[in-house]
Design a protein around this nucleic acid. Sequence first.
DNA 1: AACTTGACGAGGG
DNA 2: CCCCTCGCCAAGT
Length: 120
Amino acid sequence: MNVDERSYRERVYELVLQIPSGRVMTYGQISLILGESYTPRTVGYVMHAAETENVPWQRVINSQGKCSTGRLTIPMKLQQELLDAEGIIFNEKGRCELQAYQWFPDGYEQEEDKQTSLFQ
DNA sequence: AACTTGACGAGGG
DNA sequence: CCCCTCGCCAAGT
């Protein structure tokens, strides 16, 4: 019951489980929300075991809007295909528009000032 | 107990 | 855009 008794991994999974289909979060974003000792790298470390834990691991990508699972067991192609099936569109370079797909939990919405100042 | 290894990210060239 | 370096820290050896 106590939140602090949950393992490092479970806190990450609990957050990932909340990501709606067709939306994504980044490793850095998750680390900022969980705070303390969580860093983008450790979040990535946790996620490599996520496929066996019944969590939508494909909805976590890097800050550039790309999948980065290629080096280990999971082909990047598979992650892209799963996200494509959820309606996410990747360009030729394997990148998607984070502005369109990134999801923020309640209380962590992106500040609007930043979005309006980005004229890309 | 020391050392290595990353599903990362920001910054600089 | 791509490539490199460095900081970060849990887990595995």
